[in-house]
């Protein structure tokens, strides 16, 4: 074993993974195999990208981690999810939120008839904070997302797509998570807004040490902010590499993201 390798191994064991997904298989409705065999990990303070074509199993993997698979009549039929060293497979999503895993769902899912501020408050209820604490936490989130403050009294369903994505992230942060599962934050948004959102995610990661596992189709952008990435293909991990290495591979687009190869 070379010196470099032994140092790396030591560093890795010092950073016991926050999230450790071991060979999970996920089946919908008892019949549809969506995730065949996925293993991945996130160490504290990391941003990790989860890439793959439509239907590769990114969202299903995130739902398996957050426990939200049950809401879609799916089951983690094999493998285990470990969080902070504990087996949390099959634990109800609301209990996992209390333990520090929060899932920002694909398509944002804000509470449309609630105001922006009510949405944010709902995120904090879990911790049973005092009035004073809630006000302070809200101000903190508004500092990261100033746009939300100007819309605080607006019904969330009437805000723009970008604002809804920010709201969904802000609401999730109010649960004080250690790990945020972020599913396609770029979906249907203008490039400038997506840049803004990723910049805020990076900033949150740096200043609060929150870890992120981000499922994305926008490879270039997500890899610029992530440290490592996994590429899923048909429910399996096809490549696992550092963001740098992944960015350097010019076969990524063609092979794993379903982009037609040039004739």
């Amino acid at each position: 074993m070379s010196l470099v390798e032994s140092i790396l191994t030591q560093a890795a064991s010092a950073l016991a993974p926050l999230l450790d997904v071991r060979n999970i298989e996920v089946i919908y409705d008892g019949a549809i195999l969506a995730v065949a065999d996925v293993s991945l990990s996130v160490v504290p303070g990391e941003i990790v990208a989860l890439l793959g074509a439509n239907g590769a199993g990114k969202s299903t993997t995130l739902k398996a981690i957050s426990g939200l698979v049950v809401a879609d009549r799916a089951l983690v039929s094999r493998g285990e999810v470990h969080f902070r060293g504990e087996n949390v497979t099959g634990i109800a999503p609301n209990l996992l939120a209390a333990r520090g895993i929060v899932h920002v769902l694909e398509g944002r899912h804000v509470f449309g008839h609630l105001t922006v501020e009510e949405n944010l408050r709902a995120g904090a209820f879990l911790r049973r904070p005092s009035r004073h604490e809630i006000e302070r936490d809200l101000e903190e989130i508004y500092a990261y997302f100033p746009r939300l403050k100007t819309k605080r009294k607006t019904q969330a369903g009437l805000t723009s797509g970008g604002e809804q994505q920010m709201l969904a992230i802000g609401r999730a942060l109010l649960t004080r998570p250690e790990l945020v599962l972020l599913d396609e934050p770029s979906m249907g948004l203008a490039p400038l807004i997506v840049e803004e959102i990723f910049a805020i995610v990076s900033e949150l990661n740096r200043s609060k040490g929150t870890s992120f596992l981000v499922a994305e189709q926008n490879i270039a952008l997500s890899l610029r902010h992530a440290r490592r990435g996994y590429v899923l293909d048909s429910g399996r991990v096809a490549i696992e590499a550092s963001a740098e290495d992944l960015l350097g591979r010019d076969d990524l687009q063609e092979i794993y993201l379903g982009v037609a190869t040039a004739p």
């Binding site: 209990l95 804000v110 449309g112 609630l114 009510e118 209820f125």
Partner: peptide
């Protein structure tokens, strides 16, 4: 009340309510 806001949240989006820890 918090319970009231939680109830309206559940009415709007059950999955999202679960995801932020609301006890359905």
């Amino acid at each position: 009340t918090r319970i009231g806001v939680s109830l309206r949240a559940v009415a709007d989006d059950t999955r999202a309510a679960l995801s932020i820890g609301i006890n359905l």
